[in-house]
């Protein structure tokens, strides 16, 4: 308790720290939002809740790390992870997801849960259980007496995340495939009647999700650290964000992602870093309760 009060006191004594916490939170939040957007895509289009979301992120990180070990420039690891994870996503779709897509919710949850365990263990066998990270060797920018520091590698990572998000948004709005994906999400049967090959759309959507996650992982390995069993942290954040923002609500996903990032940083500053994940789950509970209350006032049912 004393420690919590002391930590709050620090925030008041050094107001600039608030800014630092928000910046840190927004930077990691941008990557949470990326993984969450992929999840929302698959969830919305195929009604598959992908519990292996975080493991795709970590796999992408390992792809980038492995390429760097082979002598490729780390920044090229992001597009490389995007492409390779696209292929892996497609294979996984054909092998696993396409078989459970028509089944009930429970089957697809079980399948993706199994997939998550498999992926983590395969990464562990291939790369070992030690933490890995890529040091770009770039400088760190310091502001406000060194209290705010922004590593350039993180800045580059966040910019890449933003441009990837923008690219995906434009693609979904403008391209023929993007339209087909949105049509399938609205009503798969109607889309099929109108001549859209929904099987192809599903495969494309799942691969796209895997690729987005892969790129996010490649950014994470440049700016933070990864380990084969870290997938679950990103899965949990992605679920919290999508549940809070709702499906098909892209601005909502981004806002929720950044918000959760910042809230976690605040939480870990005040209550201790051990409670970081608890804060995310607590927020989810809060959002659900608030939504329930709003729905009740409107006399509607929860979907």
């Amino acid at each position: 308790m004393d420690q919590i009060l002391g930590n709050i006191d620090l925030l008041i004594q050094f107001p600039i720290v608030n800014l630092k916490i928000i910046i840190d939170g927004v930077m990691i939040g941008a990557l949470f939002a990326l993984a969450a957007y992929g999840l929302a895509l698959v969830w919305g289009v195929m009604n598959v809740k992908n519990l292996a979301q975080g493991d795709f992120v970590i796999a992408g990180g390992y792809v980038a790390w492995w390429m760097t070990q082979k002598g490729i420039h780390p920044l090229l690891g992001v597009p490389a992870a995007f492409i390779i994870m696209w292929g892996i996503g497609w294979i996984i779709y054909k092998l696993v997801i396409s078989r459970v897509i028509e089944r009930d919710l429970f089957t697809s949850l079980l399948a993706t849960f199994g997939l998550a365990i498999m992926m983590a263990q395969i990464l562990n066998l291939m790369f070992g259980s030690d933490t890995q990270s890529i040091d770009l060797g770039y400088e760190t920018l310091h502001f406000a007496d060194g209290l705010i520091d922004i590593p350039i590698s993180k800045l580059i990572g966040v910019c890449m995340a933003l441009s990837l998000a923008a690219g995906v948004i434009i693609f979904m709005k403008r391209s023929r495939m993007g339209q087909a994906i949105r049509a399938t999400a609205q009503d798969a049967r109607a889309a099929r009647v109108l001549g859209i090959d929904t099987e192809k759309v599903y495969a494309f959507t799942f691969s796209l999700n895997s690729a987005i996650c892969g790129a996010a992982g490649a950014i994470i390995v440049m700016a933070w650290v990864i380990q084969p069993f870290y997938g679950i942290t990103y899965s949990i954040r992605a679920f919290v964000i999508v549940t809070a923002a709702g499906l098909g609500n892209l601005p909502g996903v981004i806002a929720a992602g950044l918000g959760i990032g910042a809230a976690e940083q605040y939480g870990s500053h005040i209550f201790g870093i051990g409670y970081q994940q608890a804060i995310a789950v607590l927020l989810l509970l809060l959002v659900l309760v608030v939504r329930l209350l709003i729905q009740r006032r409107k006399r509607q049912v929860l979907q």
Partner: peptide, 22 residues
């Protein structure tokens, strides 16, 4: 400062900020 790190730690900037202040 006396803090516990979570099992899936990838970011300890919250602690290091406190280190900077204290």
């Amino acid at each position: 400062i006396d803090e516990k790190l979570p099992r899936d730690l990838s970011d300890m900037s919250a602690i290091l900020t406190k280190v900077k202040l204290l």
